[in-house]
Computed example of a mutant assay.
Amino acid sequence: MLDDICFRAKAHWGYDTVFMENVRDHIRVSGEAIALGRVWVALDPGGAPGGVVQVDRLDRARADLTLLFVAPEQMGRGFGRALFDKACDLARDLGTEELLIDSDPQAAGFYAAMGARHVGDTATGYRGRLLPRFSMALARGAL
């Protein structure tokens, strides 16, 4: 179900079938991350999953926003903001000071609006595709 949310959310932006099959394995929720408490699911009012976020530690000071996807039917309802806030909390819980985000180009405006700073681009290895890279400073003890 969580992988389905990721796939449907990515496909929502009109990517073709070939691209979607190439990214499928990169947008799966990790069972290990679930077991380690690095995944959080936002539920709709009926209790169904409406979005998912996964954060992974990169090194002592930095964490990676590995996944943040909102089901297309829940977009525009605050799920993204809640998931991003939770991602920052998860990264702080890991003891890190910075959350790095390799954003889909369609989501770059969202991350900028959340206060993340654009710091460059990351190559994906897929047909020269670049992803905007953002950095979010995480204040210690922030709520």
Rank of each mutant, 00 (worst) to 15 (best):
T66L: 04
A116C: 03
A11R: 14
P72Y: 11
K86V: 09
P72N: 12
D59E: 13
F79H: 13
W40V: 00
I5L: 02
G76C: 08
R127E: 15
D102H: 14
L65A: 14
T17C: 07
A35N: 09
L130C: 00
F79G: 00
W13V: 05
A91I: 02
L130Q: 15
D16A: 09
G51A: 01
Q74M: 13
K10S: 03
A11Y: 03
N22C: 07
L99R: 10
G115P: 11
V23M: 15
L58R: 13
R77M: 02
A137Q: 15
D121T: 09
M136Y: 10
V52K: 03
L2K: 05
A35P: 04
S30Q: 08
D89K: 02
G78E: 03
G51W: 11
M114Y: 11
A11G: 11
R57S: 07
L67W: 00
Q74D: 01
V52M: 04
Y15F: 13
A91S: 11
R60P: 07
I101C: 10
A71H: 13
L83Q: 02
T124D: 08
Y126W: 14
G76F: 05
Y15P: 07
D121K: 04
D44C: 07
E32H: 09
M136N: 09
L36H: 14
A116E: 10
D56L: 15
R92S: 11
G109H: 04
L90G: 09
G78N: 01
G50V: 07
F7Y: 15
L90Q: 04
D102E: 13
G14D: 10
V70N: 00
S103H: 00
Y111T: 08
E98F: 14
P105Y: 09
F110A: 08
D89R: 08
A123D: 12
R92W: 05
M136C: 14
R140P: 10
M136V: 00
L99P: 11
R24C: 08
L58D: 10
M75T: 09
E32N: 11
F19R: 06
M75W: 11
T124K: 04
G46I: 03
D59I: 02
R127L: 11
G125H: 14
Q74C: 12
D3K: 09
G115N: 05
V55W: 06
R133D: 01
R127D: 12
G120V: 00
I101A: 03
A123T: 10
S30T: 01
F7W: 14
G78T: 06
R77C: 07
E32S: 15
D104Q: 12
A63H: 06
C88Q: 14
D16I: 09
A113E: 12
A42K: 03
T17G: 10
A108G: 04
L99D: 01
Y15W: 10
V29S: 02
K86D: 01
H26W: 12
L100M: 10
R57N: 08
N22M: 13
G120W: 00
G51E: 01
R81V: 15
L67K: 03
P49L: 05
A113S: 15
R8P: 00
A63D: 02
V23T: 04
K86H: 11
L68D: 09
R140K: 13
K86Y: 02
G115H: 07
H26V: 01
L36Y: 07
N22Q: 15
L65V: 05
G128T: 14
A112S: 15
R57W: 06
R140Y: 11
E32L: 12
D56W: 00
C6V: 02
Y126C: 07
D16T: 12
A139M: 03
L94Q: 15
